[in-house]
């Protein structure tokens, strides 16, 4: 018998409780980012002059960060595969690789922002830059939070414990990746 409530062992909806909860978290996150991005897009469509301001964002840094996140998604899904084969230590290693991706992403973002602020593009420069920092900042906060949770999962997974959590954090991580897939063209490409 386990210490967990009997409630956790049931799955009337046909999927494990943890995964069900993560999907609901994803839904609640979709509307958070959805509200912010919808607000941004409608402002953007109305202000033709925002294109000139967006021209000051660095496409190459954005593209590099996209590559980093896509690759970290790959290692996250490979970690899930390893975990479903019962190989905890391998899954943990792949999760640490994913965290490395998160750290790279945040570091690059830090240098990017520092450079832009140096050039005088701060959060109060214009509404475009306000949205730029708010949207990317909210996303970066999700990257950091995901990396911390992933570290906790990885420590347990290395000991072959709670392996089902590898998939759960993976789903969340892919969602964070998905948000960036849309932020990248919105903030960097459309000029």
């Amino acid at each position: 018998m386990s210490d967990r409530p009997i409630a956790t062992t049931r799955s009337a909806a046909g999927m494990p409780t943890g995964k069900l909860a993560v999907w609901w978290v994803v839904v609640s996150e979709i509307v958070i980012f959805g509200g912010l991005l919808a607000s941004y897009i409608m402002h953007r469509l109305a202000h033709s002059d925002w294109g000139e301001q967006a021209a000051h964002t660095n496409t190459w840094i954005g593209a590099f960060n996209t590559l980093v996140l896509l690759s970290s998604s790959l290692s996250a899904v490979l970690a899930h595969k390893a975990a479903s084969e019962g190989n905890g230590p391998k899954a943990a290693k792949l999760l640490w690789l994913t965290i490395l991706g998160a750290v790279t992403f945040v570091t690059v973002k830090g240098f990017e922002w520092a450079h832009e602020i140096e050039l005088g593009y701060t959060i109060t420069s214009s509404t475009f830059w306000s949205f730029y920092y708010t949207a990317a900042g909210l996303h970066a906060a999700h990257v950091i939070a995901g990396a911390i949770i992933m570290g906790i999962v990885a420590v347990a997974a290395a000991k072959n414990r709670e392996l089902h959590r590898v998939e759960l954090i993976g789903i969340y991580w892919h969602f964070v990746d998905l948000v960036w897939i849309f932020l990248f063209p919105l903030l960097y490409i459309a000029k």
Binding site: R4, T9, S11, G18, K19, R161, H164, E167
Partner: peptide
């Protein structure tokens, strides 16, 4: 306990 959840997880897959 984790084995049990693991089992559920695999049926889910």
């Amino acid at each position: 306990m984790s084995e049990q959840s693991q089992a559920i997880s695999e049926t889910g897959d």
